[in-house]
């Protein structure tokens, strides 16, 4: 739509969402949001309930068509009519509610909808499925010893890992994770955070929506705070304190600029109990 001003800057970004607006009847869900994500970058998208995080991500995943605004993906202006359009470009979204089939085994879930076939496409190539699944899980450092057990028998963290691994099998350029660590035990959160690091190290951009703020400082490069349909703040995760982030989320304007927070941030992170020998 807009002429290519600042095109040089844009080509280095994996995706730029510019002035995205979406209105549901009387409700302004998105009031002109601009968000950019670099290759291999991990963005934490935070905000209170109804801040517009999920709507923004659904726009990016093609599940919601915005009223106006521009999405630039790898330097190309794109528009998505369906999730399939977004997926073809390499945008994968892992939904909150563990989109797995409990009764199907790990390998079957990883390849659901695109199973390797034999005999002219008539039969499943079960052996290859398990072989590929094993390779794939190993490549992502996901420790699931057996690929032939139904995912219903796995722990929450393992199931989430399988869900993310499935999204990664599509070879995405951008992975959107909606609350991947909600409802997980502490030890299992580790599994998922490790996986996010592994995936981003492979050059995949990740947008992480979560209410667990301590997770954000563990894996994110930047923190984007949404408030009532706008992007309120775009913060460097390494130079931001938890207090600063919280005050941005609840929109306390009296907290000043945050430059002085840089020093405080390190201390805060050291105090964070889940921050261990991980880095």
């Amino acid at each position: 739509m807009a002429p290519a001003d600042g095109a040089a800057e844009r080509t280095v970004d994996r995706v730029v969402m510019r002035d995205i607006r979406k209105r549901y009847g009387m409700v302004d869900a998105l009031r002109g949001v601009t968000l950019r994500v670099g290759p291999g970058e991990v963005i934490g998208l935070v905000g209170d309930n109804a801040a517009g995080k999920s709507t923004l991500m659904k726009v990016l995943a093609g599940a919601v068509v915005p009223d106006s605004g521009e999405i630039v993906f790898d330097g190309q202006t794109v528009s998505f009519a369906t999730p399939r359009d977004a997926r073809e470009l390499g945008i994968e979204m892992v939904y909150q509610d563990l989109a797995l089939c409990d009764d199907i085994d790990v390998a079957g879930n990883l390849f659901l909808g695109r199973e390797p076939r034999k005999a002219g496409g008539l039969l499943l190539d079960v052996a290859r499925m398990h072989r590929d699944a094993r390779q794939h899980l190993d490549a992502l450092n996901i420790r699931i010893p057996l690929t032939d057990i139904p995912v219903g028998g796995l722990s929450g963290g393992q199931r989430q890992a399988v869900a993310i691994a499935r999204a990664v099998t599509f070879g995405p350029k951008l992975l959107i994770l909606d609350e991947p660590t909600a409802a997980l035990a502490v030890a299992e959160v580790e599994t998922v955070l490790e996986l996010i690091k592994t995936v981003s190290a492979q050059g995949v951009s990740v947008i992480l929506i979560t209410h667990r703020l301590q997770d954000l400082f563990r894996v994110c490069d930047r923190l984007c705070v949404m408030y009532e349909g706008t992007l309120r703040a775009d913060l460097d995760a390494r130079a931001t304190s938890l207090e600063r982030l919280v005050s941005e989320i609840v929109a306390h304007d009296q907290i000043d600029s945050g430059k002085s927070d840089a020093g405080k941030a390190d201390g805060r992170k050291g105090n964070d109990t889940t921050e261990g020998a991980r880095r």
Partner: peptide, 21 residues
Amino acid sequence: TPFGRYVIGLGSNGESLRRTG
């Protein structure tokens, strides 16, 4: 067969199956 797999998937978690295309 893939069809049989989708039958099980539909009964197990139809929404998940739909999202895979």
